[in-house]
Structure formats: structure tokens, C-alpha cells
Write a protein that binds this DNA or RNA. Structure first.
Lengths: 223, 223
DNA sequence: CGGCGGCTTGAAAGGCATCAACATAAGTGG
DNA sequence: CCACTTATGTTGATGCCTTTCAAGCCGCCG
């Protein structure tokens, strides 16, 4: 067992806020984290149908999973931000159902799924925690059910804000993706994203400078 | 430990095709199934925010999870058919995020989540199987991302067909829900559901008599 | 048989996509 | 560091798909 890796990981303050921290920081009986990977914006983590072998804990940056439809358009199926885990989808079919790539400069911990299972066998007290993490993702993108484009964008902003805000003092967050990505994720045209964000800005519901967004009136967004 | 319950369950042929069969039929060290419940069409299984204590294996019928939005409209978030498991969503928040009710006459096995965890602790070989079942649900409703109403309905029919067809000989399946339910699930008006199904019928892509649907040309549906 | 929920069909209105042109930002190479 | 090139965002005009409202029909159950 490569304790050097474990120690390396344990020393990172990142791990404290990571969802998997509970696993990695606890005694290190099994080296679940096999390596750390750095991805540039746009770089592919894996392609469709690649064998499923790893889960990924995102330290910095963001990932998207995507599919190219018969018309050649990209559909973004999932969005995974820092301190979140990506990969559970692969368990079912034993391969990844979509491609995955980095939305920005991204750093991830690669976790052996087998190691993860072995760890749970040794430490069944972490069982609930593991199921908890997966359960979280089942209700993650509920808001995509909103019907109108305004509602979907509003809900998207509220969700991003909750997932990205490190502390409560920081009043806003940095959009980790382009308007095109947002459109592909929410199922609407890029122009619509731009128009609605401009509308929100005009109505003083949000403010945007470059990619930094502040939600000025969460109440109005939630209507 | 109530072995009577286990034996009762073991004798049911239903259990063979149930996703949880692997758990229930194996040795019965822990009584995971606490009881069997019968629900009439429309009957509520649990309400929003009810404490999470159970998973449910559906033997017959179907469940929906739903939410009433600020306009008073029902939004259907999940659809769970026979031989499937419902309830994992509750693990995360320790309560159910939506209400759940029966779409038709429904029979379910109530499973204690705690018993489920205990079983996994005793039999860690079933760990992967448990994660597998949850993973399945992560990719379940992917097709809701289709943009046009026609695409969504087509994908919905293909999905239902795959989930409901018992054997390959049976050429069709019985719609377990009303057009209104379908509309609420797919995010479109009831009239649109009716119009598009009529269109498919006119184009000989499907046939419908009462609630029995046959997919005549799966190729055309998948375009 | 009568009533009610569910389905069907039509006409009108509205939201969003599409196409197009431009503005701005980011990235590249000299 | 600047000029050029490419990617990203903005704004307007038009058309289409879907919603909404309205009315009628069908089938089921008491």
C-alpha cells in the first residue's frame, strides 16, 4: 500500500471540505485515491463508453458530461463542481454513459472504485455516508423541470450560488462556464441565456461583471 | 427476527424478477422487508417532508413522486414501475423531498432502510449490487432533456416499453397513467400529449386502443 | 341512465428558436 | 506589446411550436 499517496493527500487542506474527505482522511487503510489529475479547460477526462473504473473528487474547477445528438448539437447532462464527486453513473452499466470534460482549469482526485468498495467492506460504518453521497445526486438537478426559460435560469443561478459559495461572506460567485454551456445544459439557445440574464440585470435582480455574478434579490429569483 | 415474513416473501414468484430479489431471497439473515402494502389508484404513500425510513420495492402497479408549484400545478418528478425500487432520494435529506402516490392499483414491499444497511454490513458482497441499483436511477430520466415535445414523448414511450415489457413476445404495454400525468411528467400540456400521440397514430408509428400501446416503428420513434 | 373525469380538436396568443449582424473579449503569433 | 484572429456575448426581426382557452366527445362507474 502506498502510504506516500495517502499522506500526500492528508496534508491538503482541500480534503477537509471535500465530500470524500471522510473517506480519505480516515486512517488510510486502503489507498482509495490513486492519483491526482490536472485538466485544462476543454480537456477530456473520458469519452462515451469508456470503461468505468474510477470515481473523481473535484478539488478545483468543474466538469461537464455531454452527448452529441443526431443533429450534431451538444447536450450537457451533468454539471459537477468543486468539492463534489463525479462518476457514480458509471456503476450501473460498467462504462460511462456520456463523455466528460473540464469546463475550466480543473484538479481532480482519481479514486479507484474497487478501492472504494474495499474500503467500505473494511469500514461498514461509512456505508450510510456513501449512500448519502449518491442520494444527493438523485435530487440534484430537480429544478431542470421548471417550464419557462426564466424559471430555469433563475433556479440554475440559485443552485450554482449554493454549490459554489465557499463562505457566507462572499456575496457572489464566478460563472464556471460559457453561455453556450449554460444553454446546452438548460436546453435553450445561447441567445435566450443572454437575453434573460440581461433582463435580470436590468431589473436589478442580479449583477454581472465579466463572469462574476451577484444575486441581488433571491426572493425575486425564486418566484 | 421474524422469519415468517421472510418465508412469506420467499414463496412469492414476484421476488424472482424483483431488483431486490438478490437481497430478500438470500438467506434472510436480516428481515429487510417489514411489510407488504396495497395502494389504490391515487392513494398517497407518503407526503412531502415525511421522515425517511423505508425503501419500497414495487411488485405491481406504479408510483409517482410529485410537487405542487406556486401556481398550484402538479409537477411529477419521478416515475417508478413494477420491479423497481423507490426511495433512495430520501437518504440524503433524511426525509422525502416530494410526495409519492400510486398511479394505479399498486402492491409494494416496505423495506427498512436500517435493515438494508445492516444486511449490507453482514454481507458486504452485496455492496456493489446496492450501489448498482442506485446508479441505475442516476441515468434513468436522461431522455427528459430532449427539447421538442415529440422527441420527449417518443423517448418516453421507448423507455416505458423497455421498463414494462415482461417478455419479448408481448408486443405492447398498458399505459399506467393518464395523459395529464404524462404531461405533468414531461412538462407539457395535456392537449399536447393527446395531439402528438394522435399524430404518431396517424403516421402508423404507434397504435393505441384504450390504454394499450404498441410501438410499430421504434426506428421512427428514435429519430 | 346520468354524471364526471379523461380525451380530442380548433383557434388564438405567446414564448422561444433561428437567422443575421454586430460588439466585445480572449487567445495567438509576430 | 501590439495586431490579428477566433471565440463569446448582444441585440433585432421573423417564424414556429406549444400553451391557453373553449367546446364537444367518449367511456366508465355509481
Amino acid at each position: 500500500m502506498d502510504f506516500a499517496i495517502i499522506l500526500h493527500i492528508m496534508m491538503k487542506s482541500q480534503c477537509v471540505q471535500c465530500s470524500l474527505g471522510t473517506f480519505c482522511l480516515n486512517e488510510g487503510l486502503v489507498p482509495i485515491v490513486t492519483k491526482e489529475r490536472h485538466l485544462k479547460r476543454g480537456e477530456v477526462l473520458h469519452r462515451v463508453n469508456d470503461d468505468f473504473k474510477h470515481l473523481y473528487a473535484i478539488q478545483r474547477g468543474a466538469l461537464k458530461t455531454y452527448e452529441i445528438d443526431s443533429m450534431g448539437n451538444e447536450i450537457i447532462h451533468g454539471l459537477y463542481l468543486k468539492n463534489e464527486i463525479y462518476g457514480y453513473e458509471g456503476i450501473y452499466k460498467n462504462h460511462y454513459v456520456f463523455g466528460a470534460s473540464a469546463l475550466a482549469e480543473t484538479v481532480i482526485c482519481e479514486i479507484s472504485y474497487q478501492g472504494f468498495l474495499d474500503f467500505l467492506r473494511l469500514k461498514p460504518d461509512f456505508l450510510h455516508r456513501a449512500l448519502y453521497l449518491m442520494s444527493q445526486q438523485l435530487t440534484a438537478s430537480v429544478y431542470l423541470k421548471s417550464i419557462t426559460a426564466q424559471q430555469r435560469i433563475a433556479a440554475f443561478l440559485v443552485d450554482l450560488s449554493a454549490r459554489l459559495s465557499i463562505n457566507l461572506l462572499e456575496p457572489g460567485f464566478l460563472l464556471p462556464m460559457t453561455y453556450q454551456d449554460i444553454g446546452n445544459y438548460l436546453g435553450m439557445a445561447t441567445e435566450t441565456v443572454s437575453r434573460i440574464l440581461s433582463l435580470f440585470k436590468r431589473n436589478q435582480i442580479i449583477s454581472i461583471h465579466n463572469k462574476y455574478i451577484r444575486l441581488l434579490s433571491i426572493e425575486k429569483l425564486k418566484v
